[in-house]
Structures are given as C-alpha cells and as structure tokens.
C-alpha cells in the first residue's frame, strides 16, 4: 500500500493527512475529516451527490483520489453556510421552495448551483438546467430546484443593490 502525505485547504481550514493512494477524495472528506455533508452515491461519477468545488470549480469528488487534491483548496457544502447555525441565501432558497425531499442529492445540487451563481446572478432557466445537468435527483422532479436557484439569484441581485455585494 502506498501512503502519501497531503496538505489541503477545506472550507478555509488547512488539513494534513496521510492517505493511501486508492482513497477517494469523497471518502477522505467524509471519513478522514468527518465532513459528511458531501454524499457518496454511485461512487463512479454518475449521480453528482459528491460534487465539491476544487479551486472554485465544481467537480466530482468520487472521481478524484485524495492524493491528487494535495495543495488544492476545496469547498464542501459545509463551507457554504455563513456559520453552524445559519443558511446561505442559496440554501435558504432551497428550503423556501421545497427543493429537497430526501435530501440525498442536495449537497451536490447546492455546489452546482453555487458555482453557477458565482459566475452569474441572472441565469436563464436553460443555464440553471445546464448547471445542474450532472446531478441526479430521484425525488423532486427538478422543478423546485430550478425555482430555488432562480429565487436565490433574485434575492442576491436584490441584496447586491441594497448592500453592495452578498455571497450566494
């Protein structure tokens, strides 16, 4: 077994670890760092439940080995909320529009939507569907998820006018 020392930043905190090469990044996050918000669904790149931001870019953490993320900055769903108690505008919009039922897909959906809202606050329905196109949901039928992202974009545009800049 080959062990590798890695250092990576997760939700702004620096972590060190000694990982076997075969350990996936999602397993490292969940079992090594106990950040169980990121879900492991299919574990072969199909469902999107494991989506994270790697250096700001959304991708599947089941298709990365933890050792490959050495030196990178990762954001998981835990990093979206302003604190342990509160919800981000995007998360609150999911709550508001009933964009989740069982919740299994939700962390991945939030990450995918977060990446979209970081690039535009005026996404079209088409762009929203494209952004979450790699994430499967077996419960909602997607409509409420699209509604949630639109609502979040509306709110963020509003707050940007009032306060000059709010995080999604």
């Amino acid at each position: 077994m080959s062990l590798h020392e890695i250092t990576l930043t997760v939700n702004s905190a620096v972590h060190r670890g000694l990982v076997p090469a075969r350990l996936s990044l999602v397993d490292f996050l969940r079992e090594g760092l106990l950040l169980t918000g990121t879900h492991a669904g299919c574990e072969h790149g199909v469902c999107g439940a494991c989506s994270i931001l790697l250096d700001g870019v959304p991708m599947r953490s089941c298709l990365l080995f933890a050792v490959q993320a050495d030196g990178c900055a990762i954001t998981t769903v835990e990093g979206l909320a302003p604190g342990p108690e509160g919800l981000s505008v995007l998360q609150d919009s999911f709550w508001e529009t009933h964009a989740l039922q069982c919740g299994f897909c939700t962390p991945g959906m939030l990450i995918a939507a977060q990446a979209l809202l970081q690039s535009t606050l005026t996404p079209s329905d088409e762009e929203i569907r494209e952004a979450i196109g790699g994430n499967l949901c077996r419960c909602t039928g997607y409509k409420q998820i699209v509604d949630a992202v639109k609502l979040a974009a509306d709110r963020l545009r509003g707050s940007n006018r009032a306060e000059g800049g709010v995080q999604p």
């Binding site: 790149g45 999107g48 991708m59 599947r60 298709l63 990365l64 494209e130 196109g133 790699g134």
Partner: peptide
C-alpha cells in the same frame, strides 16, 4: 461531452 462538472476535470 459529458456535462459541466466532468468537462471541468
């Protein structure tokens, strides 16, 4: 090709 997340990697 795939979707946004797989194209990113």
């Amino acid at each position: 090709v795939g979707h946004g997340q797989t194209r990113n990697r």
